[in-house]
């Protein structure tokens, strides 16, 4: 069994990408979208999340450790591929390369984002609320940094969902894989809308 450790780690990596990290991402952008309905709506929802009992334990088990594992193994995976989109310009080969490229963007984005929000809250420097995000996103470069970060996360999740279905042997035939491409495109558009819409609400109040 010892020689099957690699298999186990890769399957765990795949699973964690969807459960819990993917679910967390959708939940996170869904709550953020409440910003569209005004400052009070967002603050109320963010407050509930923040005041959950055992919040630090929950965050560690459901978010930090899974992302840390997924990110570290992910970076290793990124650097063991030989990218070939110039020679083999097929659609799936591009998705393969983009999945890895967005993974690297996410390492940078998530580190920055967590430092700016959760770490600062933990240090008692700021509070999680509407005005925190408003302050960050009112700077145009930061706004675009967040647009790139959010779209990368959503792409990585949606395309990851597609390959998750293959990794777990759910979609096998070319036809089912084609249909799941369209389903994942809809996931990308829907979750991407939530993300971008809330960024606009924070930054421009629209």
């Amino acid at each position: 069994m010892a020689e099957q450790r690699e298999f186990f780690f890769r399957r765990l990596h795949s699973l964690l990408g969807v459960v819990p990290i993917g679910i967390f991402l959708v939940q996170h952008l869904f709550i953020n979208h409440l910003a569209v309905y005004g400052e009070e709506a967002f603050n109320a929802a963010a407050g509930i999340m923040h005041q959950l009992p055992f919040v630090l334990v929950l965050e560690t088990l459901v978010i930090y450790l899974p992302i840390l594992f997924h990110a570290i193994l992910g970076v290793y995976i990124v650097f063991t591929s030989r990218y070939s989109t110039r020679r083999y310009g097929f659609f799936r080969n591009w998705m393969f390369a983009l999945q890895r490229f967005t993974g690297i963007v996410l390492v940078i984005f998530i580190a920055w984002h967590v430092f700016e929000t959760r770490v600062q809250v933990g240090l008692g420097n700021v509070d999680v609320n509407y005005s925190l995000m408003e302050g960050i996103l009112s700077s145009t470069p930061m706004f675009w940094f967040y647009v790139v970060g959010v779209l990368s996360a959503v792409f990585h999740f949606a395309n990851g969902l597609w390959s998750f279905l293959v990794t777990w042997g759910i979609t096998q035939t070319p036809k089912s894989q084609r249909i799941s491409t369209y389903v994942c495109l809809i996931v990308f558009l829907a979750v991407g809308y939530l993300g971008i819409r809330s960024l606009l609400a924070f930054a421009y109040g629209i």
Partner: peptide
Amino acid sequence: DGCGNSQN
């Protein structure tokens, strides 16, 4: 597990 689904 080495497959990354590039499908080339």
